[in-house]
Design a protein around this nucleic acid. Structure first.
Lengths: 217, 217, 217, 217
DNA sequence: CATGAATGAGATTTCATTCAT
DNA sequence: AATGAATGAAATCTCATTCAT
């Protein structure tokens, strides 16, 4: 209820045993939220899954909400780090995109709870939800801006472009990773890269935008 | 718990009065879900908003779940009709895209509940949630396939493309319609069209995909 | 609705305090069911009677149904133990019957809730209801069978006889213990024994059943 | 709630159509109460079963309780009439008993709702419940008293005997008619008659009641 | 640190009954 | 006579959170 009090972090455990317990609860929460969703998940279920007593939950977390928020922030950081590592060293921006998408899909496949946890946050703590996308977008924007300056990417509003590309990734991940029946999504990456490459490449232009001409008419 | 029983439709009202009441409840539910979200919404709140007694809700709906599902399906149908009408008569597929996006944003601006309602459904009745996107995607795919055959759109897997474009629309709608503070989103449409047009136009190709050459440097 | 879930036993209390509370609730439930009946009894009433909070009920019992079933099984066991102790050591089977009836009536007088609880079970959990009578009948049958073999009781189908005698006890208990206004029921025991003794004694036979002859007229 | 008002009979329908409708509702109620029990039965279910609108129920009955009471009284009358017809003309009292039992079992087999309806009444309108047994017992008592005077039945307190015999019938009916898997209950009648005949026949006496002697020891 | 018993507000759902048509 | 929409009181059940041990 009272966000100020229920979101205020408890002090982190001092002992190693405490740290282990806290982590157990957090992991259990991720699993339970991912499986049955935030609303249907009860603290009792989480602690049962974690193998600790009910009261232990409140030793480490001020509220149910707080764990979700922590999970969102944690997943956000992990995802960004994961992608950053994968595209580190890739020179060409279009290649960065291709590899970034691949990395995102891999991450989703590995953390199938990601979607459910992020999306639940929208209704529990909208600030955390927006923060997740804003933070991601910020980083994306930065990269795109640099690439635009270098002339590697078509000059467009970087925020618009960042959200558009995040939307592409999000929906393809949902459809082909989450809903996909375990199929490989390499082909999807190829298809979408084909599309992005043309959309992004600044060297391709149309005489009359919106009224494309056939090349050999 | 039991979906079969709580989603089973009650018989429709036999009288005009009944139909009016049912509609009042449905509309109130949309408003309340949109405002405070499905989970925080109580039947009491919905019926208060609708100006009827609590029990009246259960005369027309078997459960809170059922109204949400009905709203999802209804919004789905309305959205598709709305866009279809707006793009009807537009010849060129790229123009269809531009106008389709504009229409979608207009719809979102008009029905700010759309997102909350659809997204909540994911955790309440996942089937309804998926149905919403699948239905939308099917229609989109059909249009794209036709355009590909006509050579108006780059030949790609139509389903991948449909989901990608839906993702673009969804995220831009979220960022610039929902979160945007009432600002005009014409510029966003222009920006994104500029991107799409190049991504979709089959007449633009790269000699070496991924290693774009400057045309006349 | 779902019997499997609402009858599934919760874990037993781990502490002495918990055990005490659970027992308080159970006893209160017996009292309330006995006074106003199962259907009119509310959980609120039961917990008020037990002096605990409403929610405490659900810490120990999954549903109202479950307490009733537990009470039925408990009363069944207590009744059988009570009668067994009273007839223990009585040699002659006819004396066992007399004493058994007396014991049953005493038990009823002491536990005026017995009837209401058992009988309500018929409509709440028929299995428990039947189990009550079947278990009772089984024990009764065993005793009768032994007595028949010893020639102390007329040779008849033991199950038929057991149910018949249970019916006698049940109805006399209802009429003269429950409905009887606190009157002594010794006379009833004498009267019924007089009847049973002749019905059961295998040494009394009729030349022509149904057309009794006076013996020495 | 208010018994005075809710049990007060509505005037009987004047038209033939009305009488038919009333009867339909009554019959439907018997079926529904018999199937799912009084408490679980709703007026809506009853009227649906009867093929009339919900409101029609209250045209003919003041309350749910009232129908149950009416059914109890009606079944009581029907049962007594049925047995009376079957034993009419039978001379010997022991034969009357045998035939009476057989008739009772036949009635139960024909009206499997009998038990549930009578027994439910105990918790809904105890007066009606007691009236059912008292009325039955009264008639039984009268017959037994006459037979005792004629020397056809052992001289015992007729009320005790009546309730005892009703208990026998009730429990055997429950066990072998209701619970019996469609098996024939002729054998049961024979067995129980064998028992009753000796219990009732006044010509069989024991030198020392309760301490039976072996005849040829 | 850890436990688990206890709480009670609040939510969903049912349904007998009334009443205008 | 018959209808069926509307009501709202009341019941069951859940669960985040507190607290004494």
């Amino acid at each position: 209820m009272n966000q100020a009090s229920t979101l205020a972090p408890k002090e982190l455990p001092r002992t190693a045993r405490g740290q282990r317990t806290r982590q157990q609860v957090l992991t259990a929460a991720e699993r339970v939220f991912g499986t049955i969703g935030y609303e249907r998940a009860s603290i009792a279920e989480i602690t049962r899954e974690a193998g600790v007593a009910l009261g232990t939950f409140y030793v480490y977390f001020p509220s149910k909400e707080a764990v979700l928020v922590e999970l969102v922030d944690e997943l956000s950081a992990r995802l960004r780090r994961f992608i950053a590592e994968r595209v580190a060293g890739v020179e060409n921006r279009l290649e960065v995109e291709r590899e970034g998408f691949r990395a995102f899909f891999d991450f989703c496949a590995e953390h199938r709870n990601l979607y459910r946890i992020i999306r639940q946050a929208e209704f529990v703590d909208e600030a955390a939800f927006r923060r997740y996308y804003r933070t991601l977008a910020k980083g994306y924007q930065r990269g795109l801006t640099v690439a635009m300056k270098k002339g590697e990417v078509r000059a467009l509003d970087p925020e618009v472009l960042a959200y558009a590309l995040m939307g592409v990734a999000d929906f393809l991940g949902m459809r082909f990773v989450l809903w996909g029946d375990g199929k490989r999504f390499d082909a999807v990456v190829d298809q979408i890269t084909e599309f992005l490459v043309h959309g992004l490449n600044p060297d391709l232009t149309l005489a009359t935008a919106g009224k494309p001409q056939r090349r050999k008419s």
